[in-house]
Amino acid sequence: MAAIPTALYPVPAQAKEPETPPERVPAASEKLLAAKNVTLEYRTRERIVRATHDVSFDVYDGDRFVLLGPSGCGKSTLLKAVAGFIEPVAGSIELDGEVVRGPGADRIVVFQEFDQLPPWKTVLQNVAFPLRVARKMGRAEARERALHYLDKVGLARFADAYPHTLSGGMKQRVAIARALAMQPRVLLMDEPFAALDALTRRRMQEELLRLWDEAKLTLLFVTHSIEEALIVGNRILLLTPHPGRVRAELNSHQYTQDSTGRYEFQQSVARIHRLLFEEEIAR
């Protein structure tokens, strides 16, 4: 069994190590997802653009694995490749030892856009419909599971509402409930909270971590926010500016939202910023 990498940066000797909530420490687990020397390209009207170059990483069962990097580093393109929407030009992506060759119900994506819900369907119908189509559930079973996950995200009483009556944060919670109801092997999230205000974003991060605790999710999360990566993730892959290459990998399970004002948290933010930007400028 492959070992999960240790933290890249130790907390400075003069800083007190924060207490680690035991429920957020990742247990040793089996490798679930493997990206092996993945190079991704996409075509514009003018040319072919290389999004990532020779990227490798492993995601273990129960991980909260974050892809972190500046805009244009290919992190969202990499997430789409894991989802099966894009085929690598070199390398491979494997799930449970099988090469990913297209989309599947074992990998569900929650996107940044709020309007990812069909507006003519109620909240309940938005969550239940994929279950009936992809999971071949009957109407009653799909309704029961949909209501269960709407309750998990605190929206059971809005089951009969339509998307246009919901706030942005509520729409994202519906999208998360729809994804969780499918019970995927890996939940893929592409900057899902980026467009939210600061207070709503914090609340959504709290809810996501609570759902991870309850549902034992495996999460692959894309963000360009260093603070969000440290809070949401237990492991972080740093990608260089375009084209995305692996700069470093580190553990962050010791941090929570209560860590943000602490010395060791701010030191980690500063170190990651230097890795992502200042060393690139120096080079």
Rank of each mutant, 00 (worst) to 15 (best):
M1K: 13
I4S: 10
I4T: 11
L8I: 03
A13M: 11
A15V: 12
K16C: 12
E19F: 12
S29T: 08
S29A: 14
L32N: 00
L40Q: 01
R45N: 14
E46K: 14
I48C: 09
F57H: 04
D58G: 02
R64V: 01
F65M: 08
G69M: 06
S71A: 11
S71C: 12
C73M: 04
G74M: 04
K75N: 07
L79P: 09
V82I: 14
E87S: 15
I93R: 01
L95Y: 00
R101I: 06
P118S: 05
Q125E: 13
V127I: 10
A128G: 07
L131G: 02
R135P: 08
A146E: 04
L147T: 04
Y149F: 15
L155N: 05
R157T: 15
F158Q: 11
A161R: 14
A161S: 14
A161Y: 11
M170K: 08
Q172T: 05
V174L: 09
I176T: 06
R178W: 00
P184G: 03
R185P: 07
R185T: 14
D197I: 10
D197S: 06
D197H: 09
T200Y: 02
T200K: 06
Q205T: 01
T218P: 08
T223E: 06
I226F: 02
I226T: 05
E228I: 10
N234M: 08
L237K: 04
G244M: 05
S252Q: 07
Q254T: 10
Q254Y: 06
Y255Q: 05
Y255E: 06
Q266R: 15
A270V: 12
R271T: 13
L275G: 15
E279Q: 15
E279C: 09
E279H: 13
R283L: 11
